[in-house]
Nucleic acid binder design. Structure first.
Length: 207
DNA sequence: ATAAAGATCATT
DNA sequence: ATGATCTTTATG
């Protein structure tokens, strides 16, 4: 353990819990780190979305559909689910729950805290009003996460999450972004974010 | 073998 | 509103 980001690394038990929405809320305020080639980068998680393979039409693994892409979600919690969307963006998710249950949490925005100049360079794009790690594609790019990290352990040397202790904020809840194809499940209030945080990506249609 | 569809983003 | 860009998945 020792010196990583200087907080307390989340144990596997954190990810193995059975309620993906509880875990999603608990992830707010935690710090997500990567260390590739000695480049430590990280930030405070400020926006997430929960997905449940058994019951949720918005989840890639619905209804418990195991494919090459979704198979990692059926593993035990504490692994990385990374996938390519629109041929361009890599989205980083955290697998939760026990083996055989396909739940995951999409990290949609972080507030940069460690290695910010490295992340800004990775973005290679102008910083806008919401910074450079707002929106799931931008989070993964800033942290240097790509498809090669599919299945990586979140207790491994390259990707992990830490708790830095006291952190007061108000949790806001809305429907999820970009899941209109999910019918009635598009209405589930499974998106969570830290109220008032400037890095939060955007609001659902009609809010 | 082929085609269609994206848990997005930046720009117009 | 629209285009970029390519893997995964379903279907024949």
């Amino acid at each position: 353990m020792g010196i990583r980001g200087k907080g307390k690394e989340l144990p596997q038990a954190f990810y193995l819990r059975s309620d993906v929405n509880v875990i999603a809320r608990d992830l707010l305020g935690k710090y997500l780190f990567t260390n590739f080639d000695g480049n430590l980068t990280g930030g405070r998680i400020v926006e997430v979305e929960a997905y449940c393979g058994a019951s949720d039409k918005a989840c890639h693994a619905y209804p418990n559909k195991m494919t090459k892409r979704t198979s990692i979600m059926f593993e035990h919690g504490g692994l990385a689910y990374v996938y390519l969307i629109y041929g361009i963006h890599k989205l980083f998710n955290i697998v939760t729950n026990g083996a055989g249950i396909a739940d995951a949490i999409l990290v949609r925005a972080i507030e940069p805290s460690h290695g910010t100049s490295i992340m800004e360079r990775r973005r290679n794009s102008s910083v806008n009003k919401k910074g450079f790690s707002s929106g799931p594609g931008n989070v993964a790019m800033a942290l240097g996460i790509d498809l090669s990290h599919y299945g990586a352990s979140l207790q491994g040397p390259e990707i992990w999450i830490e708790d830095f202790g006291e952190d007061d904020f108000a949790i806001q809840t809305t429907t999820r972004i970009g899941v209109d194809y999910a019918g009635e499940d598009a209405l589930l209030p499974w998106r969570y974010y830290i109220g008032g945080n400037k890095h939060v990506s955007k609001m659902p249609k009609g809010e």
